[in-house]
Design a protein around this nucleic acid. Structure first.
Length: 442
RNA sequence: GCGACCGUAGCUCAGUUGGCAGAGCACCGGGUUGUGGUCCCGGGUGUCGCGGGUUCAAGCCCCGUCGGUCGCCCCA
C-alpha cells in the first residue's frame, strides 16, 4: 500500500491471523493425509548450492531462481525453487542405511523469480509426497491416493477436482506407432505438451519435422485430446486412439489399483498430460479443477532414474508436489473457505474469563486464568476497562469461545458461573470441579 | 524479460470542468453496580502507493517509479 521499502516484496504474502489460520487448515489436511498414509515428515535447507538445481534442469533454470552470494564469499546459493533436488540429495547421502521403502513428505516454502499471476506467486508453500524404492502401479496409486485424501479432508469431491493421468510408456508406444522415430520421442512429448499454445500451421510444421504425415497428425491430435474415465476398459481406450491394446498395457495395472482403492471417480485418463520435466519415466499426472478453470493444483509422476542422476543407486521413485496457491483458489471458489474472514479457522477458546468487578473477583481472575492454561485449556479474556457483562460476553462471542466463565464475589466461596455460549445456558459450579467439567465438554 | 488494466481509511468503494478528503462495514469508547451472537450514542483511525513536474491551487493533469491484477515467456 505505501511505498518501496515498507512493502512486502513482489509475489510474497503477509500472513495475518485469518490468512495464517487458512494456511494451517490446509497444512493440517496435507500433514494428516501424509501421516495417515504412512509418510514421515522431513525438511531441508531453505537454500542450496546453485549447482544442485542445474544438475537436472540445466543452466536455463538460473533465470527463474533467486540466487545470491555471501558478501565477500565465492559460493553461489539459490533459494529452493523445488524440493526434489534436496530430496534426492538427502536420499543419496544415506541411501545405504535408509530402510526401504522411503516414504517422506514435507510442506516447505518455495521461491521462484517469476512474474506473479493468478495461481502463481514468488513464494508459496508446496506439499511434496514421495515414495522411493517401490516400482509399479501399487506405489503410483498410493501416491495419488494420498493427494486425494488431503483434498477430501478439505471438503473437495470428484466433481470439484479431477486427477488427469497418463503414462509415458503408453504414449511413447502410440507415438512410435504414428511414425515418430526413437530419437524424436522427446521432441514429440514437448509438442504434445505445447499443442494448445501453437497455431494450426505451426503445429503442422513441427509435427511434420517429427516425421508425422497428415494421417499421423490426426492420430497425434486424437491422442492429445483423449480423456476417458479411468474405469474405461483399456481395449476401448486403445480403439479410441487406434492402436493395438498392447500399446496401452502399462495403464491396466494402474487402472485396477485405483479402482480397487475406490478412487475411479476422481481419476481420468488424459494422454495429453506430459509434464515438462524430462526426468519422468512412467506414469505422470496432474490434479486439476474439474472444469479446467485453473492452473494445475498438483503435478507428479514416476522418476525411476533421478536418484541415480544425483549419484545414488538406481531406485524406483514416485511423487508429486502440490502448491497452496491454486489449491486455495479452488477451495475459495467452492465456498470452502468462506468463513475465514470471520475467524472460522482460528482456534476456538475453551474459556473466556470475565470478572464483574467485585473485589474477590478482580483478585481471583488472574490466577484462575493461568491455572486453567496450565491445565491445558485455551483461555482468553477481555482487556477492556469496562466490567459490563454484556460487553464482555460480546468479546467472548467474537472470539468464538465455547464457554464464558463469570467470576464475581461468590469466588470468595470457591464458586464461579460457567456459561455455555453455544447453548446459552449457565450454572454455578465449584472452582475445583471446573477442569473436569471443561474437559468433559470438549 | 514483454504487454494491458489498476492503486483514495483496516476492508469494499464514492469523490463533478483541478477549489476545505467522504460512505458502509470493521475497529475504539460509552449506555444510571450482571448476560453475547441482531439495540442506541460518540469517535475518522488518511503520506489519496511513492518521487518529481504543471498550476494561485493537484486525489483529479503530465513524467517516472514501486506495487497489485490478468495475460505472454516459463512452469521444476
Amino acid at each position: 500500500m505505501s511505498s518501496h521499502k515498507l512493502q512486502a516484496p513482489k509475489g510474497t504474502r503477509d500472513w495475518y491471523p485469518n490468512e495464517m489460520s487458512v494456511r494451517r487448515h490446509i497444512e493440517a489436511a496435507w500433514r494428516s493425509a501424509s501421516v495417515d498414509s504412512g509418510f514421515d515428515e522431513i525438511e531441508g535447507p531453505t537454500f542450496e548450492h546453485l549447482e544442485l538445481y542445474t544438475i537436472k534442469s540445466g543452466e536455463g533454470i538460473v533465470n527463474e531462481l533467486f540466487s545470491f552470494t555471501r558478501a565477500g564469499g565465492d559460493d553461489t546459493y539459490a533459494l529452493r525453487p523445488e524440493f526434489t533436488p534436496t530430496l534426492a540429495r538427502m536420499v543419496v547421502a544415506r541411501a545405504a542405511q535408509l530402510p526401504m521403502p522411503i516414504k517422506w513428505f514435507c510442506m516447505p516454502a518455495m521461491f521462484r523469480a517469476e512474474r506473479p499471476q493468478r495461481g502463481r506467486l514468488r513464494e508459496f508453500q508446496q506439499w511434496n509426497v514421495d515414495l522411493i524404492g517401490v516400482a509399479g502401479a501399487e506405489a503410483d496409486a498410493e501416491v495419488i491416493a494420498t493427494g486425494i485424501l488431503a483434498l477430501e479432508r478439505l471438503g473437495l469431491r470428484p466433481t470439484d477436482v479431477q486427477v488427469r493421468i497418463s503414462h509415458r510408456d503408453a504414449v511413447a508406444n502410440i507415438l512410435r506407432r504414428l511414425g515418430v522415430a526413437a530419437e524424436s520421442l522427446h521432441a514429440a512429448f514437448e509438442l504434445l505438451d505445447r499443442r494448445d499454445k501453437l497455431d494450426a500451421a505451426e503445429f503442422a510444421k513441427r509435427a511434420a519435422a517429427l516425421g508425422l504425415d497428415e494421417g499421423a497428425r490426426a492420430g497425434f491430435e486424437r491422442v492429445a485430446r483423449t480423456t476417458l474415465p479411468i474405469a474405461t476398459d483399456i481395449a476401448e481406450l486403445a480403439r479410441n486412439v487406434d492402436v493395438p491394446v498392447e500399446d496401452v498395457e502399462p495403464l491396466a495395472a494402474l487402472r485396477d489399483r485405483l479402482s480397487a482403492l475406490g478412487l475411479a471417480d476422481w481419476c481420468r485418463w488424459d494422454l495429453g498430460i506430459v509434464r515438462g520435466l524430462a526426468y519422468y519415466t512412467g506414469m505422470v499426472f496432474e490434479f486439476h479443477e474439474a472444469s479446467g478453470a485453473e492452473r494445475a493444483i498438483a503435478g507428479g509422476g514416476r522418476y525411476d532414474t533421478l536418484v541415480e542422476l544425483f549419484g545414488g543407486p538406481k531406485l524406483p521413485a514416485c511423487g508429486f508436489g502440490m502448491g497452496d496457491v491454486v489449491l486455495s483458489l479452488v477451495l475459495a471458489d467452492r465456498g470452502l473457505l468462506k468463513d475465514a474472514e470471520a475467524g472460522a479457522f482460528l482456534p476456538r477458546p475453551d474459556v473466556f474469563l470475565l470478572s464483574n468487578g467485585a473485589e474477590a473477583a478482580e483478585r481471583g481472575v488472574a490466577g484462575l486464568e493461568h491455572s486453567l492454561r496450565r491445565a491445558g485449556f485455551h483461555v482468553r479474556r477481555s482487556y477492556k476497562q469496562t466490567r459490563n457483562i454484556g460487553k464482555l460476553l460480546g468479546d467472548a462471542n467474537k472470539v468464538r469461545a465455547r464457554f464464558a466463565l463469570i467470576v464475581d464475589d461468590k469466588f470468595a466461596d470457591g464458586v464461579v458461573t460457567l456459561k455455555d455460549l453455544g447453548a446459552g445456558t449457565q450454572a454455578d459450579v465449584w472452582r475445583e470441579d471446573l477442569d473436569g467439567l471443561l474437559r468433559r465438554a470438549r
